[in-house]
Design a protein around this nucleic acid. Structure first.
Lengths: 212, 212
DNA sequence: ATCTAAAACTAAACACCGTTTAGTAAATTT
DNA sequence: AAATTTACTAAACGGTGTTTAGTTTTAGAT
């Protein structure tokens, strides 16, 4: 009697349908433009139906947040194959920037918007472990670099935090409209991308000088 | 017959009253909790009245944005007296972090939220010049450092952008709830402040190693 | 002092929003 | 076939930003 199983599948399918629709909408129209009502309309159900599958809007954001972290981890997956820690670190930075610039809305959801974080804070179960794990990977890579003579005398955790801060700051400034000081950059994404690349390259040069 | 002048004064006073009220409200209740209606209530006028002094809500944010930049510039004012560029750079970073941590809501408005920026983009008059000027100060200081043997061979603009990215990233992560990897940091502001200080100190050590 | 025209202000409405409630229709179990 | 659980929704609640139409207050001219 697989009716129970089918029902469960249906339930998950519906959840997924809602999430897919939300994802599509917030890619198309941006963040503040997603409403439960627009999600409901796009899946051709009434707004109240969504509350049968999600507690509230934050829970939808939370689910998208998890999904986004999945995407990011997937982007990092191939990099674990790189043996040299310093090379791996460089490529991790590149991949991070690449992810942020090609999925700015997702990046915003993951690292800039505070809504799902605040929601998580109220949950007892630590589901922000994905973030912890990602940071552990960074820590491990920095440690590897140090064993090869980079960043000697600098604390591993502080150095990791430094690197993350820089990359995150660069991505944040690139995604938001805050890169000024070059008037062409105001609306030209290509100029912004170039600034980001140049800045990252300079960072890389800086790190290379920190050997021995 | 100074009646016309008085009316103009009254108009400006009212604008200021609205802005003060908005500022107070968004310090008290946070960002998303400010509504035109709550502003109106706190100044004891009807919501529609606000539209006689501001085009829309974005224009209020925009005005607060300018005001916030004034505060930041004021915090930077004393630092121009520091003769040594490298010392000045260090103190600028400290002042920036200090500003961000003591006025997180203002910092969020200035550098994280995109609303007033998007509004500015539609304005023809370039009023984001304050940001440009602040960056010029940074550029000038970095150039000074280079003349004293720091960061040689690195592009001035890229280096400035690197520094701003790092500091901004650090502040962003500190303000939002995204610093994980230390479970105590989840809700303890003191731990977060310490992480930020340690990270900045490490950055400083790094820069010092880049002499010659 | 009275009339007029402009300025200041607001009540009410509009079209949204997230969320809840109460009730209907369909599917499943008995 | 009846009873019960499940899936769904219409309508409402209290909130938002904004507009409109109309009222009150003020200023200047007669």
């Amino acid at each position: 009697m697989g009716v129970k199983e089918r029902k469960e599948r249906d339930k998950l399918e519906m959840r997924d349908k809602i999430l897919q629709s939300a994802h599509k909408l917030f890619l198309e129209k941006g963040f503040d433009q997603i409403s439960l009502r627009s999600i409901a309309e796009s899946i051709e159900y009434s707004p109240a139906t969504i509350y049968l599958y999600f507690k509230d809007k934050n829970e939808i954001f939370h689910a998208l947040h998890q999904q986004g972290f999945g995407m990011l981890n997937q982007a990092f997956q191939p990099l674990t194959l790189i043996a040299s820690p310093f090379d791996r670190l460089r490529e991790m930075g590149k991949a991070y920037i690449q992810f942020a610039t090609t999925n700015p809305e997702v990046y915003e959801l993951l690292f800039i918007r505070t809504e799902p974080m605040e929601h998580l804070a109220t949950c007892m179960d630590d589901q922000w472990t994905e973030g912890d794990r990602a940071f552990d990977v960074l820590l491990h890579t920095v440690k590897g670099c140090q064993e090869q003579g980079y960043f000697v005398g600098l604390d591993t955790q502080n150095m990791s935090m430094l690197i993350w801060s820089f990359i995150h700051g660069l991505c944040s400034l690139g995604i938001s409209k805050h890169i000024s000081h070059v008037k062409e950059a105001r609306d030209n994404q290509m100029v912004i991308d170039e600034i980001m690349n140049n800045t990252y390259q300079t960072f890389q040069l800086m790190l290379e000088r920190l050997k021995n």
